[in-house]
């Protein structure tokens, strides 16, 4: 960990000003990912702006009848919040499938969106990694890529986004609220994270001088028919090999609306709108689910030790849809 200076921002303006004035400054709140990466010598900010005293820690209803999750609310507070648990159980379940109780007590919603990949090579400075050191090469392509992506990859990077929460947020079509020195803007969740392309070092479409203030959930929470299915190498406290977030609106046995997002398979929570369209208007049965699953993995590519994920993802989608439709 390199030396850095520290300041505590008193309000949003101060936080934005501090970050805008220093291109090697980073915000810190929960610290669960940043401090880890600084210890691993992967990230080297020279100034940290503590934003934990900014407020931004409320969960409240939006005018449209949705829910606004302050960016500094912890993952645990969010998951156990009565409104979230009741109206957005998909989100609550996804959060509680991630990390550990201790980490969820520290990690914030904003930080969860910005957590970085768990790629072994990204973490190990003895090996080349385009995400850590652009242009150095991708060690995972021909290496041990059990935990790596099968969708939306590039020759420069096959890392995955490790969040569980974000998979649910993608399915719920949340909106990310950000503030910069010129004002505010809203980023649809689908546009928040990026695919690696030839710039794998940039994870998200968030400018360095912007701060996430909230994540807004639209009114529809799919609280009747939902499933967060997480498949991992042990029963708990492990990142997803594949995860699936499903929200359905049913009319009898017919699917009226479908949301489907996958984790552990791509550089961002993965949605396939064509696959979702294949579900809508069709009976909730194995044939329908398989068609959607096949459509999703049709574009998948394995790299050796992660090739099993293609079939696993297919089966996981079918299983999650089946459970959600019940």
């Amino acid at each position: 960990m390199n030396p850095f200076t520290y300041s505590r921002a008193g309000d949003l303006d101060e936080a934005v000003r501090e970050i805008s004035d220093n291109d090697r400054a980073k915000f810190i709140a929960g610290g669960t990912n940043l401090v880890d990466l600084m210890k691993a010598n992967v990230m080297h900010p020279t100034h940290l702006v503590d934003i934990t005293r900014l407020g931004l820690s409320a969960i409240e209803e939006t005018e449209e009848g949705g829910l606004r999750l302050g960016s500094l609310v912890t993952n645990a507070e969010t998951a156990y919040h009565p409104q979230v648990a009741e109206r957005y159980p998909l989100l609550a379940n996804a959060i509680l499938a991630g990390a550990s109780p201790q980490l969820r007590n520290m990690a914030t919603n904003g930080g969860n969106l910005l957590q970085r990949t768990r790629c072994y090579y990204f973490y190990d400075t003895a090996t080349p990694c385009n995400k850590r050191e652009p242009g150095s090469g991708c060690s995972a392509l021909n290496g041990h890529n059990r935990i790596h992506a099968i969708l939306g990859t590039s020759e420069h990077c096959i890392a995955t986004h490790p969040s569980d929460m974000c998979v649910a947020l993608a399915a719920l079509e949340a909106v990310v609220r950000v503030t910069n020195r010129y004002g505010e803007r809203a980023i649809p969740f689908a546009d928040f994270h990026r695919l690696p392309g030839d710039t794998p070092h940039i994870d998200a479409n968030l400018e360095p001088d912007e701060i996430i203030t909230a994540v807004e959930l639209p009114p529809r929470g799919f609280s009747q028919h939902f499933k967060y299915l997480k498949i991992r190498d042990r029963a708990s406290y492990a990142f997803a090999l594949v995860s699936v977030a499903v929200g359905l609106e049913m009319e009898g046995d017919t699917i009226r609306e479908a949301r489907l997002a996958l984790g552990g398979v791509a550089h961002k929570p993965w949605r396939n709108l064509e696959a979702e369209a294949l579900l809508v208007g069709n009976p909730a049965n194995r044939e329908t689910f398989k068609r959607a699953a096949d459509r999703i993995v049709a574009d998948a590519r394995g790299y050796g030790s992660n090739s099993f994920k293609i079939e696993l993802a297919r089966r996981a989608v079918v299983r999650a849809l089946n459970e959600a439709a019940k």
């Binding site: 768990r118 072994y120 090579y121 190990d124 090996t127 060690s139 041990h144 708990s236 492990a238």
Partner: peptide, 21 residues
């Protein structure tokens, strides 16, 4: 990892030992 001759999952997040559950 034979590219580097190195144990690559060298932490407790990726070297999985049994957890309580």
């Amino acid at each position: 990892d034979h590219q580097f001759g190195r144990f690559i999952n060298h932490d407790l997040a990726e070297y999985h030992v049994a957890v309580n559950l």
